[in-house]
Amino acid sequence: MGDRAICMTSSEKSDAEIVCLVDDDLSVLKSIERLLASDGFSVCAFNKPKEFLTYVQAHAVPLVVLDIWMEEMSGLEVQAQLSALSPQTRVIIITGREDQTAKLAALQSGVIAFFTKPFDDDQFLNAVRGALAMHPIE
């Protein structure tokens, strides 16, 4: 499995309209990336959480879609570091496992939405749209 950090950004889009995506499962990563693209979003996808954390230090990231269960580090850990590195970044969590405790913890720490895979595409895209719209651009 090769490293992957691809940003499907077109030149006219600014960082503010880019959605970051972190999931260590390549086929899931690719599929969410396409789903977002099909609705017109630009996506910057990472299959290594640490690469995302590096990226976020150099770029303004309005929204990240984050998987919880990853080999390298858990999505909740990424979120914890992110709140220090980029407190303004909104977080949507996607997880492969129904876990009420994790959901509660995530929502309490400022996550705006929590989806269990597989999820409804409309609900997910609405949440992404909503998150980007509510984001105050600095």
């Binding site: 690719k30 492969g96 597989p118």
Partner: peptide, 23 residues
Amino acid sequence: ASVAHELNQPLTAIANNAAAARR
């Protein structure tokens, strides 16, 4: 957990790819 996760991943990818194609 493993069983659910192992099945969920490909199903999620299929659902997303299908939804993307439709859109």
